[in-house]
Structure formats: C-alpha cells, structure tokens
Design a binder for these strands. Sequence first.
DNA 1: TTAAAAATGAAAATCATTTTCAATATGGAT
DNA 2: ATCCATATTGAAAATGATTTTCATTTTTAA
Lengths: 151, 151
Amino acid sequence: MKEQPWWYRRLRDSGSRLTEPRKLVLEILRNSDEHPTATEIYVQAHRMKPSIGLTTVYRTLELLIQLGIVQKFEFGEGKSRFELVDKPGANGRHHHLVCLKCRKIIDYSDISEEEKEFLSRVKGRLKSKHDFKIFDHLMWFYGVCRECREV
Amino acid sequence: MKEQPWWYRRLRDSGSRLTEPRKLVLEILRNSDEHPTATEIYVQAHRMKPSIGLTTVYRTLELLIQLGIVQKFEFGEGKSRFELVDKPGANGRHHHLVCLKCRKIIDYSDISEEEKEFLSRVKGRLKSKHDFKIFDHLMWFYGVCRECREV
DNA sequence: TTAAAAATGAAAATCATTTTCAATATGGAT
DNA sequence: ATCCATATTGAAAATGATTTTCATTTTTAA
C-alpha cells in the first residue's frame, strides 16, 4: 500500500475532489527546487497532459493556497511564484546586485556556507523576536560596478 | 540656502535630469505615510500638474528604484506599491518581514553586531567577486506570522 | 542662443491573472 | 459497475497593471 502525501487528505477533507490536474500540479511543485511561476508549472503540466489549461493551473494554485498547502511569493517581477509549504531546503537564490550608475542588475545565486549559517541565525532571531516563521528571503545590494567606477 | 534632499544628488550623479515630474513624484512619496501604488501617485501628481502622464510616473519610479531611492513592494494584490528608501547609513528600514498569509509587513531596523559584521563580509566578497562597491542593502524575509499560523 | 540628448505623453501593445460559460469528469448512491 | 448531481475543467474573452513606441517637448552644456 502506497503512502499518500499529506495534502491528498487535506484536499479531500476540504470537500475538494482529487483530480488529475490537481495531482499533476502538486507533483510538479514537489519535484521543483525553484519557486515556479504559474506559467512554468503550466508548461510542465502541459507536456505531461496536453489537455490541461492554464486557467486550471491558476485555479488549482489558488485552492492550494487557501488550504495552506502552497505558498505564494512575489519578488517584484510582476508575477507570482509558488512553493509547497514545508518543502525543506529550497531557500535562497534571490540575491541582486544593482549598479547605481549604469543600472545594470546582476543576479547571483552562489551562497557561501557562512551566508547560509548567518541566514539561519537571522531566521531564528526573527522567529523568537517577531514570532515569524521564515520561508524565504531576498537581498538587494546597491553599489557601483567596476566599469562605472573607472570613468 | 535650502538644503537639498539626498536623492537630488544621487539623481544628478547618475547622469539623470532633475525634472518637474520627477520632483513631483519624489515629493508625493516623501509626504505619504502609506505605500502608494503607481496609479495613486499618478492621481495626486495629476492634480498638481495635469499635464503629467501615468507612463512618466511608471518610468520615474523605475528609475528611482534602480538608483536605490525608492523601494518596490508587492503584497500579492497584483500591483506594486512604492516607498522612499531612508537615507543610507542612517537607521534605515532596511529589513522587512512579510507575512505570506495576511500580507502584513513589519519593518525592523534593529541590526545586531553579528549582522553588521556579516554584511561587511558579504560586501567584501561582492567587491572581490563581482567587483562591485556596495553602498547600501535591503533585506526581505518572507514567512507566516503567529496569528496566521494559529488558524 | 542653440543644438544634441534626455525626457515626456498618448495610444497601442504586452503580460499575468480572472471571469464567463458550455462541456466534462468525479465520487457517492444505487 | 452504472447513474446522476455537481464540482471541475478548458477555451476564449475580459480585465488591469505595466511597458513599448514614437512623435513632440524640455533640459543641459557649449
């Protein structure tokens, strides 16, 4: 007997049906390390089951958010990103370097061990001080790149 | 002789012109306690100078974000909200805690010694790796607050 | 004062997300 | 397994925020 993911029960308990598209969206979320957008999820889902529609992906995500199975993030890109709640070890990768002169933006994702440790300490502190459970973070650094300093 | 806001200099230094629409948008941001949306800023600006266009408000905000003068927020409403960044170096609200459920935002400025050290190490690393000289930073943490976890 | 470059505004285009509505799939009852 | 009420779905249209295009205006430096 195969063990069912905890969200199957939560879906059922809410009176919602456990449909193919819903299982697919959940499977895709389970298997992605990034925080996919609705469209990214749709593209994957569509490859596996071409009959699926983007609308359904949106509706499913909305439902899963209501049920506390999925979290919605916004990083200022003008679109939302989604992640399974309590998915361990999918944090970081959202560091931006902005040059104040030429306005170039560099995304960098290489996080050092030190940085990870620091972040987990900060998260611990935020938990105890503000009683927040942190799922993710975003860091912006503003400066001037070499080319612009040379002028 | 009137003292000019620090952002005037930063605009100038970036090679951008200090135009009427830009001053207006900055003035509106300076005088608002809330985080206005682009449209809200436009409505105010338009009252003071009817020739102004929504496009210019968007373009100005984009520029100010690139220059680190303005921050963009997204609360999951499908539109962005904007706020003036505090003067760099001075007890700025550089840290934000966002509750992913109720969309509440907590600004906190109490930075520990450990945190300051960490940031200076990160800045050093960014300097050597990406050859950026960092002037300022911004950190966002996404999580769920106590009230929302209790449900 | 003048010309080049930067900035502007209006309208059109784009993009993410939501709504509408007719067709389909699901799960409990039979 | 079959049936049926209804939850769910997909396609297309609608919406709303943001971006692009392009001709005109404003700003700055010489």
